[in-house]
Design a protein around this nucleic acid. Structure first.
Lengths: 222, 222
DNA sequence: GCAAATTTTAAGAATGTTCTAAACCACTTT
DNA sequence: AAAGTGGTTTAGAACATTCTTAAAATTTGC
């Protein structure tokens, strides 16, 4: 998650940057209004933190300009101003929230998280080593690379990951993934395991899906 | 737009109710925690205004209970409490905003509008690659060229772009764009996707709308 | 009420997925 | 070391989904 801070007071900016980086956000800082707008326009941030009073271009101007082109990215104002009129004005200009200085970092952090909630979503994301599987989105990533899996491949991987660390017997796999409840005598599972290992580029070192001879398979983070 | 106020101080409740009704919201009031929760659960409100301190069930408890069943509806807390911990606590429990008494009605109103913005479908310009979609004037451009889309084509593209980066399952599409909530067995989506790709002149390089076989479609900037 | 445009249905073509079968490989047992 | 057991890999046949087109049904505008 990437955040842009536009704040002229170097101390506050540094404090925020450090705090947010500790929360594992990627943070850019602009100390001046125009610079901030250019950065906001040329990069894809997930959230903007704007100071109200800025040299060059005011925070509210940045917000207005920015909103003309981009509706989605949430904007939070930081400000010492404490009059109602200006709060209202800020929210009307397209901001999503407004926090008055002095504020506590924890409160700011929670307000940021509230704004990012739709993005981070409470998707069911499963992990196996550096592989992530998102059931809501039906997407699989290895590192940053997206890996396209077919329905069955996806279902099999999901089953293995859901049972991570447990041995999955072939009969359980064929029941859960293929919905076959009688005697099974095909080699489908093997074929699909092979396809998964290939697509996920599993090697001897990254042997996330291991074979248990005579029993089945097991998914492990190693 | 329907709002539920849960507030035990009759004066404040009446003041809010009147003010919001003048802004043409439909307003219900509960003066007690349990009553508030029951109302919230049994009706479809667009927003909840909860007092922190309540007889019966506290605002935070209402929020928690309510969030268990209903993810979307925004919740704003009204409170005299002014400690950081409790603000943070409130936001963590699933609230979307938090306003401290005494507040000015105008500020509350703007914060309510901010929360309702996604619902009221604030007019906006969305982007997908070099395609822009403007919901206000119902126009679509690719580069500088204006591209005429019919209602349905536009609605479908808007849905895909609003969910940019997420896989859109066919059932979700047919529900949101066609408003069909039962089993679907037609090929309309395919036909419209085809029309979009044709009108937008999408090629293999500019494959902004991708097919996820067996699942649906996904819009990507690539 | 008619003409034009839009939306939906339907059907064959194109493409992608799933599964079977058979050859190949690796480890175990005798 | 040979035979046996079980896993891996490959190719392609059978199957399913999606694309494309055209025509039918519906809606919209005059």
């Amino acid at each position: 998650m990437r955040i842009l801070i536009v704040e002229d007071e170097a101390g506050i900016a540094a404090f925020l940057k450090q705090g947010l980086e500790e929360e594992s956000f990627a943070v850019d800082v602009a100390s001046e209004g125009k610079e901030g707008l250019v950065l906001a326009q040329s990069n894809e941030y997930d959230l903007l933190l704007l100071d109200w009073m800025l040299p060059g271009l005011s925070g509210i101007e940045i917000c207005r300009q920015f909103r003309k082109e981009n509706q989605q990215t949430p904007v939070i104002f930081l400000t010492a101003k404490d009059t109602v009129d200006e709060t209202v004005f800020g929210l009307q200009s397209g901001a999503n929230d407004y926090i008055k200085k002095p504020f506590h970092f924890d409160e700011l952090l929670e307000r940021i998280k509230v704004q990012l909630r739709p993005k981070t979503g409470e998707h069911a994301v499963f992990k196996l080593g550096d592989i992530t599987l998102n059931t809501e989105n039906h997407q699989v990533h290895k590192g940053n690379e997206e890996i396209y899996l077919t329905q069955k491949e996806f279902a099999l991987l999901e089953f293995l990951i859901r049972n991570k660390g447990k041995v999955c017997r072939r009969t359980r796999i064929i029941e859960s993934v293929w919905d076959i409840h009688f005697e099974y005598n095909t080699g489908v599972i093997d074929v699909y395991i092979n396809a998964l290992r290939k697509k996920l580029k599993l090697s001897d070192e990254e042997n996330y899906i291991q074979t248990i001879r005579g029993v089945g398979y097991i998914a492990k983070d190693i």
